[in-house]
């Protein structure tokens, strides 16, 4: 019965990899790793149906497949296009892709407030990384940016819609992790906004995960807001006995205090295991946790700059006030 699954080969930027049929170009690229991986702002592997919206992962297919070697006329979204046997894909080696991606970054930034100096997401923001790597130095946009009022959507979560890039990830989280449809998109076009039913809050045991999946600082943790920059905190792997979730989390420490708790994310910023609200917002005492050791952070990440140094007292007054 052990039927061998026929692997298919795909070449991305000259690097060949064998993958299972039905894999998307993006996931094939992730199997190769490194430079060939297209950036993704809306695709999120654990969430079914996500992807295809941000258009940052556009790639050029220079050869359709072994059977039909014609190139695809348009750039395709690598997160939602499945590979064919013998497909050849160009990511960074294609000028069209680099140009289109630059355009997409510019589009994403024209209505983004660029308030990184006061944004809690700064340092672990996908949009920051994307703009740094693929964007232009200056913006050609000279008009008023889109603005929304900040909304409290529950006890723990703050929605700052102005920063949102409408990746729909949080909508998928609310639809797929929680029993009720909690929130969605209102209006359309560039007036579209994430919102709950009128004046409703998001209260569900797993709704805190919308903070983790948000690629920008639109959804932030109210228990951590303005307490510290992420690069002043030390991430530690920890686990706890939790009846609701797996209890595997990362504690972001300032000294011996837990500043915030998040789920563990892989190198592409995707959550490995979703955690419950209890673990995220309420267990802020070290006694609740079984600390496993320091979290490995990419050497190039801004978070690692201060990783094992003692937090200087100069950075803590805000904490004392709170």
């Amino acid at each position: 019965m052990s039927e061998q699954i026929q692997k298919i080969t795909v070449t991305i930027d000259g690097k060949t990899v064998e993958v299972d049929p039905g894999t998307t170009i993006l996931n094939a690229a992730r199997q190769i790793g490194g430079e060939v991986v297209p950036p993704a702002m809306c695709y999120y592997k654990p969430l079914k149906g996500s992807g295809g919206k941000c258009r940052t992962c556009l790639v050029e297919v220079s050869k359709g497949s072994e059977k039909d070697p014609r190139p695809m006329p348009k750039l395709v979204a690598s997160c939602s296009t499945t590979v064919m046997d013998g497909m050849e894909v160009k990511n960074k080696s294609s000028e069209r892709v680099v140009d289109a991606r630059k355009g997409v970054v510019e589009f994403l930034l024209i209505n983004h407030p660029l308030d990184c100096p006061v944004c809690d997401q700064a340092g672990e923001c996908s949009l920051q990384d994307l703009a740094f790597e693929h964007g232009a130095d200056t913006s050609r946009y000279e008009f008023k940016r889109r603005e929304f009022d900040k909304i409290d959507i529950g006890e723990y979560i703050k929605l700052h819609m102005t920063r949102c890039i409408l990746c729909y990830r949080c909508v998928y989280v609310a639809n797929q992790l929680t029993p009720n449809r909690e929130h969605g998109i209102l209006k359309r076009g560039d007036a579209a906004e994430i919102s709950t039913y009128i004046q409703n809050s998001l209260d569900n045991e797993f709704i805190g995960n919308v903070i983790d999946v948000c690629p920008v600082g639109a959804l932030t943790d109210k228990t951590f807001r303005f307490r510290s920059r992420v690069w002043y905190t030390k991430p530690m792997d920890a686990s706890c006995d939790c009846g609701k979730c797996g209890g595997k989390a990362v504690l972001w420490m300032i000294g011996n205090e837990i500043a915030r708790v998040t789920a563990r994310k892989d190198q592409y910023g995707e959550v490995e295991e979703f955690i419950c609200n209890d673990c995220r917002f309420n267990k802020k005492d070290l006694k609740d946790w079984n600390v496993e050791g320091p979290r490995k952070i990419s050497r190039h990440s801004v978070i690692s700059t201060n990783h094992y140094e003692k937090v200087a007292p100069a950075h803590t007054p805000l904490l004392n006030k709170a």
Partner: peptide, 12 residues
């Protein structure tokens, strides 16, 4: 408003 080039580009 689903994909970014159209959402932001048309307004611009």
């Amino acid at each position: 408003g689903q994909c970014s080039p159209c959402r932001e580009g048309t307004g611009w």
